[in-house]
Amino acid sequence: MAAENGEESILNHAETLAAPPTPVDKIFDKCFRTLTFVFTWATVLLLAFIVFRIGGQALPAMKEYGPGLLFSSDWDVNNNQFGIWPQIWGTLYSSLLALVLGGFFGITIAIFLTQDFLPHKLEMVLKNIVELLAAIPSVVYGLWGIYVLIPLLQPTADKLHSSFGWFPLFSTSFSGFGMFSAALVLSIMILPTIAAISQDALRAVPRRTKEAAFGMGATRWEAILRVILPTASGGISGALVLGLGRALGETMALAMLVGNSATVSLSLFSPASTLASLLALNFPEADLNQTGVLMYAACTLLLITLVVNMLGTLIINTTTTKGGER
């Protein structure tokens, strides 16, 4: 009874904030909810519109040249002959090279940062440094590549070519601009992505799994190589696939360093060209017909990266949920 009286006195208090929503509030609520709903739809439609718009612009060229354009290597603007096979090759080859290098360094750094090699403070410093690598704009990497990396690589590359010229990887002389310099810069650019996602995967490995390995008398590296890495392999492969996705779409560093010559060659020192750099260099001065072909190339690039990225997200999603249940 006394409590009821107390409640009443609070409710009767003139300055209470609690109040049922007024009609204006309800209308505002409705509008606000609709607005958020509209923008959610807009996100989906934007992606659809991007694909649709680029696809639409590419359609005439697709009809005219068909899939043959993907596998032809002639690029002759005057005779309206186009082929983007060298660019597709260059995109895939440079990305894979970058993935091998960046993947090795990225995973090694992820292990270094997660397996108690360093005191926590130093770990954070190194983690920040690696993240800052990702913050440097790619055009700055391109500039750095031209004036720092290429002169640095020149002597080693010349030596490799003169001693191992018979080996397909070193079969062309090094002119500076080419696959090797481009892939090296590309690997620096994808390293932070791979390192960051691999770290998440390695941190998700349950402590008891690790301690079980140590309890069996495993050395630190036996535990890492035979227990921790296999357990985290799902997340790490996702990291590699997403790194590959970044490498495939990277434009500026490649346009500045790859040499932009439509060559298909296994050699690391040969100049090459990629889909993204083809777009970057030819779009500004393209006529209508050429724009169609470039849109076709953009479509191809879009398709490759979409597939790779979806694959990566899928791998990470499936493996991390499993990791959580374990």
């Binding site: 991007i50 680029i54 997403l242 779409g249 993204a276 777009l279 779009f283 849109m295 953009a298 690039l301």
Partner: peptide
């Protein structure tokens, strides 16, 4: 998916 879009594609769009 959009966060993985190559930046040049945004330019083309």
């Amino acid at each position: 998916t959009m966060s993985g879009l190559p930046s040049i594609i945004a330019g083309v769009f």
